[in-house]
Design a protein around this nucleic acid. Structure first.
Length: 373
DNA sequence: AACACGGGGAA
DNA sequence: TTCCCAGTGTT
């Protein structure tokens, strides 16, 4: 069953999606409500860009608080460009996929310094910006600039795959899905139309237990007609997730905790962290502490799941009285700690250090242990 | 084309 | 547990 089966109904489907949006749009902080949107009002491109980047592989519920925090702290793209990268990354901590935050800051500087603070309005130009891919470029062009662009995110992927019963598995099936969305996308109001589709995808055409009974597109849906809704979109089988072991090192002195800044690329790149045994390199960590002394080992205090592996974490606590770390020169110490990347953070305000969740979990465990003693 | 890249919520 | 989420960049 192909897209062509349904093209005759395309305008009908489009009209029903648009109509549904008028009364059922989610009220989201980066959005212009449909009532205002019809009179031509467009949202701030900075807000659209910020929200779209945050929403990449991330649920709306998780994004809202971060969006509020970022736009209050950095109201314009120039403000964000003027910020230190470390502050932006710390503010992003907990949201995940930290390359997004590095690219966000890089993009803000590019737009501010090279583009006079104006985001491009054309999809092809948007696509050149760091952290802006096919989806985000189309979304910004349509939502912030009123361009006709074919927007395909996970919601729309699912909605269209079901509507047309697209059998070719992803990622190849993405081309069919895109064609279907192209056939539906109106010349005017593509931004609201995309958001309308996403809302239906999120609240009706959900991944599990879709609410076909209240779906305005029920009579047009090929998957529903076949009683096969949950089969779409067809995806390839998933790979098994290996389990890896790693160790964090707790070094405390004068009520301050030793943190490091991680290397700028790869896992949790450029984020502040506890010193560890290099578990991120692709295998189990080596387990060796970064300096000589007495260590108390606590096994398996944290479990954490990443996209492609799970991690079991031990925490080794430094017990020796006085810590001797030569920070006088700029060489790597024998133990693998680079003075430039080290910082002592008051335990008191450790929640402000901007630690990714993995390390925040270990800190919470350690603080809790200490209270019990 | 396949893989790396976080974290939380839902069932 | 497993699956999924307003994907992008690298190899």
């Amino acid at each position: 069953m192909g897209v062509d089966r349904i093209t005759g109904e395309a305008q009908d489907i489009t009209a029903k999606i648009s109509a549904h949006y008028v009364d059922n749009a989610r009220n989201l902080p980066w959005r212009v409500p449909p009532k205002l949107s019809v009179s031509g009002m467009l949202p701030d491109p900075y807000h659209v860009w910020m929200s779209e980047v945050m929403l990449q592989q991330t649920t709306v519920a998780a994004v809202i608080a971060y969006f509020q925090k970022f736009t209050q702290r950095w109201p314009t793209v120039a403000d964000l460009a003027a910020a230190d990268e470390a502050d932006v990354l710390a503010a992003w901590a907990g949201l995940g996929y930290y390359a997004r935050a590095r690219n966000l800051h890089k993009c803000a500087r590019h737009v501010t310094e090279q583009l006079d603070g104006m985001f491009p309005s054309q999809e092809a130009e948007l696509l050149k910006l760091p952290g802006v891919g096919a989806y985000t470029a189309a979304a910004i062009a349509a939502i912030a600039f009123g361009q006709r662009a074919v927007v395909v995110d996970a919601n729309i992927e699912r909605l269209v795959a079901r509507l047309f019963a697209i059998d070719r598995p992803l990622p190849k099936g993405k081309a069919d899905i895109r064609m279907g969305m192209d056939a539906l996308t109106p010349k005017d109001g593509a931004g609201d139309f995309a958001q309308a589709c996403m809302d239906i995808g999120a609240s009706i055409c959900s991944a599990k237990a879709p609410k076909c009974g209240i779906c305005p597109l029920q009579e047009h849906c090929a998957a529903y007609a076949a009683g096969d809704q949950e089969r779409y979109p067809v995806k390839p089988p998933k790979k098994a997730k290996p389990v890896r072991k790693g160790r964090f090192f707790w070094i405390e002195q004068d009520e301050k905790l030793l943190l490091v800044t991680r290397p700028p690329k790869g896992m949790l790149g450029s984020m502040r962290a506890l010193p560890d045994d290099n578990w991120a390199a692709g295998t189990d960590g080596h387990g060796k502490p970064p300096l000589d002394g007495d260590w108390q080992l606590h096994e398996n205090v944290v479990q954490h799941s990443f996209t492609h592996f799970s991690l079991e974490v031990d925490l080794a606590v430094y017990q020796s009285e006085k810590i001797v770390i030569n920070t006088g020169d700029n060489k790597s110490t024998e133990v693998g700690l680079k003075p430039d990347d080290m910082l002592w953070w008051p335990l008191d305000g450790i929640e402000d250090a901007g630690l990714p969740t993995l390390f925040a979990k270990a800190v919470r465990w350690a603080v809790k242990q200490k209270l019990k003693e």
